[in-house]
Nucleic acid binder design. Sequence first.
DNA 1: GTGAAAGCGCTAACAT
DNA 2: ATGTTAGCGCTTTCAC
Lengths: 344, 344
Amino acid sequence: MKASIDDVAKRAGVSTATVSRAFSRPDMVSEKTRTRVMEAAEQLDFSVSRTAGILKSGRSYRVALLVGSGKIEWFTARIIEGLNEILREAGYDLVIYPIGDTDARKSFFSDLPVRGNVDAVVVSSFAISHPEIERLTTTRVPLIGLNITSDDFDASVRIDDRAGIKLIVRHLAALGHRNILYMYEQFTSTLGFSSFNRIYGFTDAVNEIEGLRGRTVAVSPGDSIVNVAMSELFASDDPPTAICFHQDSQAIPLLFKLRRYGVSVPDDVSITGYDNSTFAEDAGLTTVRQKPYDMAVEAARKTLALIEGRPIKVDHEIFPVQLIVRDSTSGPRPAGLSKIGVCD
Amino acid sequence: MKASIDDVAKRAGVSTATVSRAFSRPDMVSEKTRTRVMEAAEQLDFSVSRTAGILKSGRSYRVALLVGSGKIEWFTARIIEGLNEILREAGYDLVIYPIGDTDARKSFFSDLPVRGNVDAVVVSSFAISHPEIERLTTTRVPLIGLNITSDDFDASVRIDDRAGIKLIVRHLAALGHRNILYMYEQFTSTLGFSSFNRIYGFTDAVNEIEGLRGRTVAVSPGDSIVNVAMSELFASDDPPTAICFHQDSQAIPLLFKLRRYGVSVPDDVSITGYDNSTFAEDAGLTTVRQKPYDMAVEAARKTLALIEGRPIKVDHEIFPVQLIVRDSTSGPRPAGLSKIGVCD
DNA sequence: GTGAAAGCGCTAACAT
DNA sequence: ATGTTAGCGCTTTCAC
């Protein structure tokens, strides 16, 4: 059926070695022969099979990407784009392994389907445990972390989440806020390591500032973040004057809805996000920018270097975060939300 | 270095054939032997190499996904999720090929890197030309279309875009609108086929209704859709009372901004999207729902069937669209936008 | 139930 | 510049 290198060789009247060379090292074959080979190949619809070469070279030309969920949200989409961009042109395929629920996770680390089948493993932003990393190590291939810090990785690229959230907290404090809230969705077991740092970082940053109070609130996955936020705003006589969200994608729905509920942003309450993801700019959301595409490109470069045994300048790289101030933050009302609807 | 099947065989005191069987057909090996083999494998950190099996079987266990852009937006993200979900558990790797700019496109179809290297090619939602499909055919593997119609595909899954946009047009007409606008971003050469149908379908649907006027406007990629929309609204004494967007993601930014410009939705103008993508519900956007994840799952099933030579019930399947009415549409003001700011 | 051995489609070392 | 040939790591007949 499918033409093999032998068929081409026969048709072109040369040996298989010549055909192979015509494709992989054109300069080692005479102009004339090469043309003849290429014509024969074209007629037979022949393309070199990577599989055979792979077997020969011992390299799989495959890179695994481990992600914490089957859902490809903003961050993961950018990561895939960045990795694929660099890896593809180097001849590597990116293969995505979602390690979502507990079962998938257990079976992945027990079967370890990547062992012997990929040249590197990139782990993106989920709380991988030490035993799991240990297990991955038995694959004997480079391990690269994306928004994960661990000495067990051969290389990593991440942002400084503590610094990022600190920018937010200080920005709000400078505006005059003294009572702020941090909201995040309750995580499953696959919570990203980076995420923990944002939450802890919030508390630390708050404690650094005299007179500033900050509280963190976890919203259960089933609950509407809007309703929880509203409850927090109206629950006490001393409501927060600003709410910081763990991700833009949690803040954006609130921005859409608050208006209808009689709360104005930023007049009644300031709102911040994190990521500078899709629609953050359109929404006028004050946020912290991170650039996962750029991080993935760098991670891919490190990955290739490690695979090919080239030295890498920086093993563990920290990408900058930047505060993006927009219209969702301003100074608090003198008396907070209790003044809503009352003309000053 | 890496343990091979021979090492395991030696250690377990059996032949390589037995080791192979212990992994691929456990029932063909005695309980005792199997245990011994598995222990040896565990000690040596051995996993079966797929590459070798692949070479033997002649199947690559790889499926290519051709997409029109390196950017993974809502639709493509859902497609990847759906395909990966089904293909992975069947042992297939999904490999993404973005055929973005003209150069990438030309080189892809001339080199045809998938030939001999994948078991099937899934083409998602971009305007592939006939010669390009012809060229893909030389790979001799099944071709599956996602939101593309063509008899050249062995199977396809798509929505009825004309029916979808008709739902929108009739909904607006029923509300009393008589002058509506269709806005879309000017496409590059990789415009999805499905997209054309939405645009043509709009005009057709409008013409079906007595007294309804409809115009289509292409926004250049560089232009702000918000500014173009505003210009359309204020350009004439007889402005449209509703604007239909080609995708939710084009309508959502407008919803965020219109308020500031003194235009209220839906009182001053009705807005519709298409997709029911992220934030459409939060934004209260009237739209047409399509479920790309489900479509991808079905496409993956068809793909596997075609690869394995199993019969498929329906080659070319059309998924339903559904009108989702929300708060961004209502009856038009009696005198349209010219009445803005004037109390009735 | 298990072993011996051929061969999947190439690449690369060696020979000419 | 080109040909010959030995494997890469498995799977799978075919014997036993």
